[in-house]
């Protein structure tokens, strides 16, 4: 058994750099996945992740305990990507991009679903989500892919909890309409033709 996050965090704050390394290893993939959503290159994300951990190490005396290491790391990464983009002067507003592209060629069989059904469903859902603002898509990702709580998402995205709830509500109601169409339809393709 590997030690849980909060134990590693404690050791790191007491000066154990291997503990911080373990956390870096544990969350590298998740951080990279999240970072790449902001439409930056892999090397930029790698640099940001590295910078975030080196800064954590450098500032270890000033770092507090945290209720969830994961959301803390996500928050820091988001911050570093923002700093990077600002330094590149690529955008002036606070808004971050959000990449909604899908993995090509998902093996549907392995997920117990027919290829045709899956393709149809994913394209429909994707087009529904594409109409949402980037921040709502980000909230959806953090909630349902990364399984962060509303409070944690609020901290990561630096907005209040109510906004997060609103974002999720909006996103879900969009999706719900789609699910309903599918459920009641049975003539689902027809609906598509009519509505889109």
């Amino acid at each position: 058994m590997t030690p849980p996050d909060h134990i590693l965090w404690q050791s790191y704050r007491q000066g154990d750099k291997q503990a911080l390394g373990r956390l870096a290893e544990r969350y590298y993939r998740a951080l990279r996945h999240y970072g790449l959503k902001f439409m930056v290159t892999e090397s930029v994300v790698d640099d940001c992740i590295q910078e975030l951990f080196l800064q954590l190490w450098q500032n270890r005396l000033q770092i507090n305990d945290t209720s969830s290491v994961k959301h803390y790391l996500f928050k820091s990464l988001r911050h570093h990507v923002l700093l990077h983009l600002r330094s590149q002067k690529r955008f002036l507003v606070e808004e971050l991009d959000w990449d909604s592209s899908l993995t090509e060629g998902i093996d549907s069989e392995s997920l117990l679903i027919e290829q045709e059904t899956l393709t149809l469903l994913t394209t429909t859902i994707q087009s529904q989500l594409a109409s949402l603002p980037t921040r709502e898509r980000e909230a959806l990702y953090l909630r349902y892919y990364e399984n962060l709580s509303i409070g944690e998402i609020a901290e990561v995205m630096n907005i209040n909890r109510q906004s997060v709830s609103n974002f999720l509500q909006k996103a879900l109601s969009k999706l719900r309409n789609q699910w309903l169409v599918h459920l009641f339809g049975g003539i689902w393709i027809l609906c598509q033709k009519n509505f889109l």
Partner: peptide, 19 residues
């Protein structure tokens, strides 16, 4: 519902990274 959930999850996940 299961199928929709799978599709929704995959869309929210987006481009999967290989690492």
């Amino acid at each position: 519902i299961y199928e929709q959930a799978i599709a929704t999850f995959l869309v929210v996940e987006g481009n999967k990274i290989e690492l």
